[in-house]
Design a protein around this nucleic acid. Structure first.
Lengths: 236, 236
DNA sequence: ACAAAAGTGTTAGCCGTACACCCATGT
DNA sequence: ACATGGGTGTACGGCTAACACTTTTGT
């Protein structure tokens, strides 16, 4: 028993700087996009990076990430999900910093572009992401992998697509996430079989002569959490 | 642009205590088990908890978790995986602490029971876990869910089973993880079709008259990372 | 011979995939 | 009428789940 005591005593409580970084995904013009920021302070000034911030005294990591995102986009109620913690003591040139990385899913249409321009931000198509500072490249890779994994057992889109959307738009989102072309007919049948969407009266007439019915996500939370949806979306 | 500056300046770099907690899984006697510790210091003295420790100056969270596990079990090369970060400022009665939770997978047979007894530790069957201190209940739940999710697209067992094991043992592990009975014949065929195991000459004669061939995991790392294996293991 | 676990074979049904086909409508 | 995307139907192949069946050997 004295050994457990030792485990607690031998090593001190030591404080460390804690920050959050946000991998902000958006969807626009049939493309999955990533919001990046041109760093305005040294080191690595002028290079692209994720946006982040320092954890304050009375904040959880989630709260801090939300605060940063709200400040940048003006949006409240952004969807957040923890991705990974980066904590190697030498990972940040400015000293030992522990960083919690979050995925943030945003409706691009909803937020003001002016706000974003003020911060030197730019949306990049997911397959045209430039090199990022420090270990942000790895952060993005892990974050994107996590988003894709989630997409195989959860229907993604509630937070990325507009309130009402067509099945084709949803399919384009999946095409973008998994970088493959889903079969239109099969995708429709699969998605509707999940009974997570409800069809609206209204049609979108902008994409075709016939028009496509709008759908929206039902109000229930994403339930069947572990049911495989697109089983073979990610290939070897 | 001045606004991004503001985001960096307005909020200070503030340090916070950082700890790690380990959800230690083991497998013994056809049961998935969790290693818990009787807390010897106030508050909540005498109650069961996960084991943890303080992050030191020159450590990553992974290093700290590994140090704690090594100290407890005497093992090196323990399999670790990040689970989640808990960082609500009021979650620890002793002050604002950010905790990184890890899953640790251990071969029960390999480590000394004496070491564990010295620390007031005890293995609990996964369905007989007692109430835990603070938010450790939630930590365990999230950690177990994560292990199960992983089990649906990865073959779990490399780190939990002995070096050589029978298919029946592997199946019992999956029975324990998913709390259901996998069909012996189908499980065997499925697992072998993954070509991740190699059959040894030797047989285990202890469980049956006929004897069962031992298998071992091939040396390659767990590759086909996203291929669904047991698609419907977790039911709604 | 029997029991009991190991291991193989068989079948029916479900599901994913590919692709043909019809629908509605603006030009 | 025809081109275009929306939406439905079908047919094949592979996989899963259930379970029957064979093998092996200690008692």
């Amino acid at each position: 028993m004295e050994n457990q005591q030792q485990l607690y005593n031998q090593y001190q409580k030591i404080k460390r700087f804690v920050s959050v970084d946000c991998v902000i995904f958006g969807y626009e013009q049939d493309q999955l996009k990533l919001l990046l920021f041109k760093r305005i302070i040294p080191p690595a000034q002028g290079e692209w990076s994720l946006i982040g911030g320092w954890l304050q005294e009375d904040e959880s990591a989630e709260t801090a990430a939300m605060r940063v995102l709200q400040y940048i986009t003006g949006l409240t109620d952004i969807y957040l999900e923890q991705v990974h913690v980066f904590s190697k003591p030498d990972r940040d040139p400015g000293g030992s910093v522990l960083t919690v990385v979050f995925n943030a899913l945003i409706r691009v249409e909803k937020h003001s572009n002016q706000l974003i321009e003020k911060f030197g931000a730019k949306w990049f198509a997911i397959d045209e992401v430039p090199p990022l500072i420090f270990d942000h490249d790895e952060m993005f890779k892990i974050a994107f992998d996590k988003l894709r994994l989630k997409g195989t057992y959860n229907l993604i889109g509630r937070q990325l697509l507009p309130e009402k959307f067509t099945i084709t738009q949803l399919r384009n989102l999946y095409n973008a996430i998994f970088q493959k072309q889903f079969d239109p007919g099969n995708f429709r049948k699969k998605v509707l079989s999940l009974k997570m969407l409800e069809q609206l009266e209204e049609k979108d007439m902008s994409e075709s002569k016939k028009g496509a019915f709008y759908f929206r996500f039902k109000d229930i939370e994403d339930s069947n959490l572990y049911e495989p949806i697109f089983r073979n979306a990610i290939k070897l």
